[in-house]
């Protein structure tokens, strides 16, 4: 029982990270209807930048955790957003009217490029940082097994819930959200109505990158190690989460992330850690067979 609750907490944490990355996927998919294959690598870039920023702050002697955390988040989000913007500008915008597969290939190219760029400029070795927020709440003891919730885990879960709320508000209530949903439906018509489509899409990529940046910072603090190759697997999981939850739906992305995270956590604990990836994909295939548009996705209406 104690271990069960502990795995639940670990799974929620992992799932929240997947959910944060999945939000970026789902937003970009929502607006231009394509898989942003480089999104996992944007997340990796963010994690690497956060290592630099955290190390720099430590060297400058800024040790107050809330201040250091805020500064890290803001700086990393800003830089990563520029990366998100550039990726869109270079690999997607020229191909907006191209056949559907063309941007997918340029995105895969971008993913390869980013990974190797980071490997070249930052080195291939694993980068460790000191635990920024040591400490934990010991929740209760059951059969001699103490269930704990570390400060970092709590922070990750809270941040995910808050961000989901903020982004749901942005998409459903603000003028930018309306523009974005309009672009999703018909870009030409939206442009005729005076919306700057290019700007809206760019901004969406930047917001998605900023979300990936937050996930990157959180993971760096949580695990304490980062390298140039973490983007692919995380991106794959997050994309699975986005599809599982119903792509285009923000709560769906987080829900999907949580399901995948918890499945992995329980599968590793009770069955076998080797096959946890298989479990996630098998679940995805099963869900898609019975609900082809994901758990919370709207069924697509085919117009002729």
């Amino acid at each position: 029982m104690g271990q069960f609750i502990q795995q639940l907490i670990n799974g929620l944490t992992l799932g929240s990270v997947y959910g944060l990355i999945a939000l970026g996927y789902t937003m970009v998919y929502g607006i231009i209807g394509m898989i942003n294959f480089a999104h996992g690598d944007i997340y990796m870039v963010a994690a690497i930048i956060s290592v630099t920023v955290i190390t720099l702050l430590a060297a400058l002697g800024i040790s107050a955790v809330p201040l250091a955390l805020m500064v890290t988040l803001l700086v990393v989000m800003a830089f990563t957003a520029v990366y998100g913007w550039s990726v869109e500008r270079v690999a997607y915008r020229p191909l907006r009217t191209a056949p559907r597969l063309a941007p997918l290939i340029s995105a895969i190219g971008m993913s390869i490029f980013l990974q190797n760029m980071v490997q070249l400029t930052q080195g291939a070795r694993v980068k460790p940082i000191a635990d920024m927020m040591p400490g934990q709440f010991n929740l209760f003891t059951f059969d001699g097994f103490t269930v704990f919730l570390s400060y970092t885990q709590l922070m990750i879960i809270v941040v995910t819930v808050v961000l989901l709320a903020i982004f749901t508000y942005i998409i459903t209530r603000t003028s930018f959200g309306r523009q974005q949903r309009a672009c999703e439906q018909d870009q030409t018509m939206t442009a005729l109505l005076g919306v700057n489509v290019d700007r809206t899409i760019s901004l969406t990529f930047m917001l998605g990158a900023a979300l990936a940046a937050i996930a990157g910072v959180m993971v760096t603090i949580y695990y304490g190690v980062v390298d140039f190759a973490i983007g692919f697997v995380a991106g794959l999981k997050a994309f699975t989460a986005a599809v599982l939850g119903g792509i285009g739906s923000l709560p769906g992305a987080v829900l999907g992330g949580l399901i995948i995270g918890m499945l992995e956590s329980f599968w590793s604990a009770y069955y076998s850690p080797e096959y946890k990836d298989v479990a996630g994909f098998a679940l995805l295939i099963l869900v898609l067979m019975f609900r082809p548009s994901g758990l919370l996705g709207r069924p697509e209406v085919e117009k002729v």
Binding site: A98, A102, P103, S106, G109, M110, F113, Q115, N116
Partner: peptide
Amino acid sequence: EYRMLLFGAAMILIMVWKPG
């Protein structure tokens, strides 16, 4: 060292140049 970096860049460039 630069092999895969250039490979990725080439994939993007070719697609942008000839999307079809």
